[in-house]
């Protein structure tokens, strides 16, 4: 069973109200320095006009890719992908070359000037080991964020991906992210802009 675990997130953009609660929860829990956000909500406007104008949020954090480009380019093996799919950074090994930041197509990584290392979301590894949910999931008041095992057909995350036709970002790059997005109503909120032609 252990080898069949792949932790991931499914984010229902229809339920996200852009409150930035996940960003702030993450910032507080991980004690992040100024200007560093491991999880931020990008405002996407639908470019519509009244009465069809609209806006939706796109929370962006580490995608914990199956084919993580950051892991492949790391010269010191500091960036690693764990058995359970979580991509982590070993700060002892990191020398701060920032090649992973160049290689990440999602801009999910940030450089910590004080420590001289690169940092990012680790899906709240310490909380997971205590059997708790990542803090962004717990602090989402709209219930938009669902954490679960993407390999387990009985998990809510798995079912959401398949029933809501969830998509991932930049699929053309072949990174196979573990963060999926359920689009806001197609045609209603300009959600079709999420699926870009490569």
């Amino acid at each position: 069973m252990a080898s069949k675990t792949r932790w991931g997130l499914v984010i229902d953009l229809e339920r996200c109200i852009l409150c930035h609660g996940c960003s702030v929860g993450c910032k507080v829990h991980n004690v992040l320095p100024r200007q560093m956000w491991w999880n931020e909500v990008i405002t996407v406007d639908s470019s519509g006009s009244f009465p069809h104008a609209g806006v939706y949020g796109l929370p962006r954090s580490c995608m914990h890719c199956r084919n993580a480009p950051c892991v492949a380019v790391c010269p010191t093996n500091a960036s690693q992908r764990r058995e359970d799919g979580i991509v982590i950074i070993d700060e002892e090994k990191c020398v701060g070359c920032k090649y992973c930041m160049v290689a990440c197509p999602y801009g999910a990584r940030s450089f910590n000037q004080d420590k001289g290392v690169v940092q990012k979301c680790n899906l709240c590894l310490s909380r997971l080991s205590e059997g708790r949910l990542p803090v962004c999931v717990e602090s989402c008041i709209g219930g938009a964020r669902v954490f679960g095992n993407l390999e387990d057909p009985a998990s809510e995350a798995y079912m959401l991906i398949h029933t809501r036709h969830a998509v991932c970002l930049h699929p053309q790059l072949g990174t196979e992210p573990a963060v999926f997005y359920c689009l806001p109503g197609i045609g209603k909120m300009g959600g079709n802009r999420l699926v870009r032609t490569a």
Partner: peptide
């Protein structure tokens, strides 16, 4: 000098199998 931890630069030699930085070093 661009490294976050310049004194540990020698560690970049350790992953020549997949990292271009290691190969380049």
């Amino acid at each position: 000098a661009d490294l976050g931890r310049p004194l540990n630069f020698w560690k970049v030699l350790s992953n020549p199998a997949s990292s271009m930085i290691s190969i380049g070093a």
